[in-house]
Design a protein around this nucleic acid. Structure first.
Lengths: 203, 203
DNA sequence: TGTACATCAGTGAACGCGCGTTCACTGATGTAC
DNA sequence: TGTACATCAGTGAACGCGCGTTCACTGATGTAC
């Protein structure tokens, strides 16, 4: 057998990685197969040795991120062996950080591709759900000693993803920072951590 | 002068209205000018009597919605002369309703086009910000007698838009409904109204 | 009131271009002997 | 260990197609007389 199975798997992974970055920046339909392959250091035709159609790539590009999200707000790696509560607090801070806001290519696809996904086929939306559920479960684990943990976890995820999505869509840097700041404080407060602006709580 | 100025303005408005519906459903780049014009009962070439380029249309399609959002959860018209608190409560319920979830064409563009907007030019993002700011101001007015009203208004808007965005992206109807339900209760609770699940509040 | 005219909203064929996909090929590689 | 071979990952020209935009035109309309 010429070329090892690993060789092919590596090339495939390189294509998906390139696609992920380009999709994050410009969405599914605006990125051509030519561009993806060139970014991966390959040419047009080889794409079809790995995927039957362009659509097949969408779901994989989203799922890939599950293995990639490991950066904190200051750029260091997140330690996933931390206790759930400390871990969730860290992730909320990282998610709504300047770093995540600016680094579109390495962005969480839940933020970069929500409306694209809503218009996509079943596999893409399934992949989106799986990534979202992983996030919710992680937050849920941090809440196990308190009242309805899942409800709070979902609200926290909505604030993280929704806050960053709005921050990215808006043309005003100040408003953008304000939204992220408030989403972060609200999510932290809701999870039982201390936020900078405790006046937020409903009175 | 052949044709009245009103005639031209009406045609233009019809084009923007068609564009808005099609954009809501399929995003900016997937919708062709041919389709927009055909939907408005016109032909290709006439487009350039009204707009210099396709991009010019994006911002207008988003801004148009400011005049269109007037439906409650049960399909009746919202009465904008209601006191701010009652009005905001009504809008939160309408925003996260089944009706708004299903009616993609008439959807709020803040939900239908966030990632498309983030990738768009300055005019689109400005229009997006203006619609968002109108929503925030409306919520803010409902909070005027209580602590930091603007912070709560932004958190409420984030829950409304973020919740609906996630609900639309996910392939599981149950999870989708759960997210909308929780986003709604959290936003209502945060604004000081009664929600169905008061256990949500941070303890 | 009736008519001739100038205007310009709307038409539809045509343009150049880049897309997703196909296909005949090439040449680097692991294996059999 | 050395070589001949079969495999198949990767190449790049070519395809049909639909896009955004242009342009010469047409014909419905408001106005001047």
């Amino acid at each position: 057998m010429p070329y090892t199975a690993e060789h092919k798997a590596e090339t495939r992974a390189r294509i998906v990685g390139s696609a992920r970055k380009l999709f994050n920046r410009r969405g599914f339909t605006d990125v051509s197969i030519d561009e993806i392959m060139a970014h991966a250091g390959l040419t047009r035709g080889g794409f079809y040795n790995h995927f039957a159609t362009k659509d097949e790539l969408y779901a994989e590009a989203i799922t890939l991120t599950l293995q990639c999200e490991k950066m904190t707000a200051d750029g260091s790696e997140i330690d996933f062996s931390l206790p759930p509560s400390r871990l969730s607090e860290l992730i909320i801070n990282a998610y709504l950080s300047d770093r995540h806001f600016q680094d579109v290519e390495e962005s969480c696809p839940l933020v970069a591709l929500p409306s694209d996904t809503a218009r996509g086929g079943e596999p893409v939306r399934q992949a989106y759900r799986q990534v979202l559920e992983a996030m919710i479960r992680l937050f849920e684990r941090s809440q196990d000693k308190r009242g309805d943990a899942r409800q709070r976890a979902i609200a926290m995820a909505t604030l993280c993803i929704g806050g960053m999505t709005l921050a990215r869509a808006v043309d005003d840097g100040e408003l953008s920072a304000e939204i992220r700041h408030i989403a972060k404080d609200t999510a932290l407060l809701m999870g039982g951590w201390n936020a900078k602006s405790p006046t937020l709580a409903a009175e």
